[in-house]
Design a protein around this nucleic acid. Structure first.
Lengths: 317, 317
DNA sequence: ATTATATATGTAAGTACTTACGTATAATTA
DNA sequence: TAATTATACGTAAGTACTTACATATATAAT
């Protein structure tokens, strides 16, 4: 079982490292298989020089976005192997101009064929997938260039310390949020059903029947909502809970859930029920955290097609 | 300028390493910012134990898909910091059962909040993108589990040594390949135009007018095609070149191009021209490699909307 | 012209993995 | 039961980066 698959986004760094380590190790084997005395880590420098030479250490380091020290070490290795030659720049005595040596140029066609094989292997693999990892990496790189992860986290930590999630009762101005927030997740994972349209269009109806519609507000912005439906005197249903994508994982759903628990107990509820779908892992985790436990139930009786799990919790107040 | 962006798939390993290194470095800063004495590399182990304990070294190493040595070293570090406690397994004296210490449990809520912030930051970033890097990584990981990169490359290298690209003249049985191969790239990058439909439906017409339609075959499979259109006695146009995605980067296009050059010179051509689009970088590189050079031309006169570059080469036979 | 600052490169030490090997314990086999 | 094999864990050495500092040369400032 792979912990990282549960962790999802949080383990991005460790996961990238694990994958790149693996590829690098395979690279070593690939060169050895072909009896080419070459290490994967030398690839960026050697390739760069095969395309354009001479070049200096710093120049390559910039192009490759690694430290000059890394390039310097690789260059030392390649010089030792005799694959490069170095001459001092006539016009700038600090610079060391590097190019492929005769031996390096001799190696080139053989190694290029192999690079091509590797590219083909990766190409074939990638194009079997529905998503393109190169594009993904490019996007992540660009995002990190715009604003580092460090800065991004700093902003969020600060926000977390400042922000208060406020839970608010239904008001006419919030009506559209109830619709749009729910519309988002329903259409993402399922499709809108007749019942959805009815409920989302008439939140007041739920309240009239003794239920409630709550909203979560952060920094004066509505970021989540949740309905509490009255089933009978002692039973309420939690439904239509949804949180804005950009505010997920910030315990907004938890606060909405707790508010429903609190409010329903106050109204005399002994039991809280809900219906959901097993696909919605984070939601189910939240329900479990709140105290709900799965129960057997005939899901054909549900008003919604997507329902394939029912949960309940007993309120002992 | 970033060399890796040109390199594309070949530099996957180096690129993943660069990105993961960057994230790890940011991780260090993030913990330091919050005055938490914790290193990113300890995260997988500490997290695993916070979810389920006690656990042994080997067990965690398997779950995390890293070597037991790596886990052992992290555990030593965490024991030194007093965040873990170790007890010998009663039933198996070889095992060392690890759990969070009191100090570790005390750190947990604070560090979990931070982990949450990190998850939020990455979540927000990822959901701005059109592609999801987590999904991409998962797919690549799965592919590599099925068959390592090393094995994949070995197969391709072997194929390369065995396979011969054969260039064949038009035959009726190949007609559909001419259509489908071209349809693939046109619809991927552009959209089908009236002229495309006409030409792809009637390859015989090109031949009748003194041109040719060639096909590339590898291991008895048609994997590429290319048309040679007669413009006048001394001028031919190279057009509708396309290669199956799974056979790209294997010099199939090059062989087709060389065949067109050879055939047209034999028919008395003095000039070969072509029209293309600047988006098609690999194609343009191929054309340049074959000897074509960009020329000025009025692209509004072209029969195709997508044309924004013209090239030609003089044949001196 | 002299001094201060910036840039190009090298090297040492640190980091976080790996592989390789050693030791202790458990499980299997003769 | 004794010997063999397998497993759990630790440690040393290797790898490929990094940061930090040192040195030499070029450019800018006084």
């Amino acid at each position: 079982m792979d912990v990282f698959n549960q962790l999802g986004e949080l383990a991005l760094g460790s996961r990238l490292k694990r994958l790149s380590d693996q590829i690098m190790r395979d690279g070593t084997k690939i060169y050895r298989d072909c009896d080419i005395d070459f290490e994967p880590r030398c690839f960026p420098v050697f390739y760069t020089l095969s395309k354009k030479s001479p070049q200096g250490v710093t120049q390559m380091a910039n192009d490759l976005s690694v430290s000059h020290a890394a390039v310097s070490q690789v260059v030392r290795e390649l010089l030792k192997k005799g694959l490069l030659v170095a001459v001092k720049d006539k016009f700038d005595g600090r610079k060391k101009l590097l190019s492929l040596s005769e031996k390096g140029n001799l190696l080139l066609p053989k190694i290029q064929d192999l690079w091509n094989d590797i590219a083909v292997a990766i190409h074939q693999m990638i194009h079997q997938h529905t998503t393109n990892i190169i594009d993904s990496i490019r996007e992540v790189e660009r995002s990190f260039t715009e604003k580092s992860l460090h800065q991004r986290v700093a902003v969020i930590t600060k926000e977390r310390c400042l922000e208060k999630v406020e839970i608010l009762e239904y008001q006419k101005e919030y009506k559209d949020y109830f619709k749009s927030l729910n519309y988002a997740w329903i259409t993402e994972y399922f499709k809108m059903e007749e019942m959805d349209k009815q409920v989302l269009a008439n939140p007041e109806e739920l309240i009239k029947q003794g239920g409630a519609v709550l909203f979560a507000r952060i920094n004066n912005q509505i970021v989540g909502t949740c309905a509490m439906i009255r089933i009978d005197e002692h039973t309420y249903e939690l439904a239509k809970m949804s949180v804005d994508k950009n505010y997920q994982r910030r315990h907004v759903g938890e606060k909405l859930g707790l508010a429903v628990i609190e409010k329903s107990s106050r109204l005399g509820a002994r039991k809280l029920i809900l219906e959901s779908n097993k696909k919605l892992i984070p939601a189910l985790n939240l329900y479990r955290k709140l105290g709900f436990i799965p129960i057997c139930s005939d899901h054909k009786k549900s008003m919604y097609q997507r329902v394939n799990i029912s949960m309940q919790m007993n309120l002992v107040s």
